[in-house]
Design a protein around this nucleic acid. Structure first.
Lengths: 209, 209
DNA sequence: GTGACACTAGACAGATCGGTCTGTTATTGT
DNA sequence: ACAATAACAGACCGATCTGTCTAGTGTCAC
């Protein structure tokens, strides 16, 4: 609830924005509370009355990152009209994310590297990773993969590899490379169901269902 | 664990051992100097006369990690007698690394997540990543890949994905999954040179753009 | 008005950070 | 024997960390 004029952001929103930029860019452990409230232009007491602790702010930051990514992927997959393209389209959306100048890898992988197991980071991170894994498995099933769990696991791993490669090597083509691998996997896994179409044409846009 | 015999190892070795365990397990930024010297049983002045600064200790820790991994991979690949098995064997070695109870992902990816760009972490990390990338490219060339750079990049990405997946999901099968993908890629890319060996057991190889 | 409420500014506490310095002890090479 | 070296223990420094607390300001409902 914005307290006043809608053009001004609430203290909570300003804190979350500042935390998102600083935590994602420099790490949740490296960035201190003072830096966050300074950028947000908010009193320290407000942070603690809103989020309870730094861990609470970290949780909110990561949950926001997850929501943003899920929405971006869902929105991006709407461009495609068949299951195969939607499955591979996850890597197209990733490619756009990597291209953004603020890209600095996966917020969950990064935060996980600097926090103890069992922490709040692990919890949010686990649920977000489950979401992606489930998405890819479901898309693989829709695309007609005989073993959607196996293909989903392969593609999820490829997704991680692309994100890490892009971040570590500043490789803007990482998602493109990952998509080339994904395409090979999908084409190898999915055989056309129509017996008249049993030729080895991997570009067949079967329009069943 | 106090299994070390203090009089046998030099102060430098004890410091490096303690730093390796603590930094790798909990992060280079989370672990303070005091914790390292306490575990090593070494005076603080000794640390600073030996490594100069915490950054110097971090550099030595990462360089040790790189050397260890390179040696482990080189030793592991000696088991195989042909180029194709050596190329895929990188994932067998990774599988053994993941299975170790102390495994906590890639030291370079982890350290990189909690340190600024341009830091000493980035430097050592870059050289270690270049090593792996070069290794995979060379092995791909030895195995007869028509585009060893492309295949090497794909396999390096797969390697990253496996390490991250193993760490984040505690998935002990990550390297096995990665090897299954790698096998598909290698078999699709490499055509047997011997005309008498042109079996049609797999689908025809295809090249990505 | 008068609370209730949300927010700000900043002092403060206790701990920990990386790093320096003093002083002591044990083992060397010459 | 003696100087040099290497290692020890630990006080100390200034900075920074998370978190609490006091005090004051502005807005809104009633």
């Amino acid at each position: 609830m914005a307290t006043h004029t809608p053009e001004q952001l609430s203290a909570r929103e300003r804190l979350l924005n500042a935390a998102d930029e600083l935590f994602y860019d420099q790490g949740v452990h490296t960035v201190g509370i003072d830096r966050v409230i300074e950028r947000a232009g908010v009193a320290k007491a407000t942070l603690y009355s809103t989020f309870g602790s730094k861990d609470g702010l970290i949780r909110a930051y990561l949950e926001g990152r997850h929501d943003e990514r899920a929405e971006r992927i869902n929105r991006g997959l709407g461009r495609f009209d068949n299951p195969r393209d939607r499955l591979l389209g996850v890597f197209d959306v990733l490619s756009e994310s990597i291209a953004r100048p603020t890209f600095r890898g996966c917020a969950f992988i990064n935060a996980s590297a600097e926090s103890a197991p069992g922490s709040v980071v692990q919890q949010v991170s686990d649920s977000s990773r489950t979401w992606i894994h489930t998405l890819l498995t479901d898309l693989a099933r829709d695309a007609g993969a005989p073993d959607p769990d196996g293909l989903g696991a392969q593609l999820a791993m490829l997704y991680d590899g692309a994100v890490v490669t892009a971040r570590m090597d500043h490789n803007l083509q990482a998602a493109t490379i990952a998509k080339s691998v994904a395409t090979a996997l999908v084409d190898a896994a999915i055989v056309p169901t129509d017996p008249a179409d049993q030729r080895r044409s991997r570009r067949a846009p079967r329009r069943h269902r």
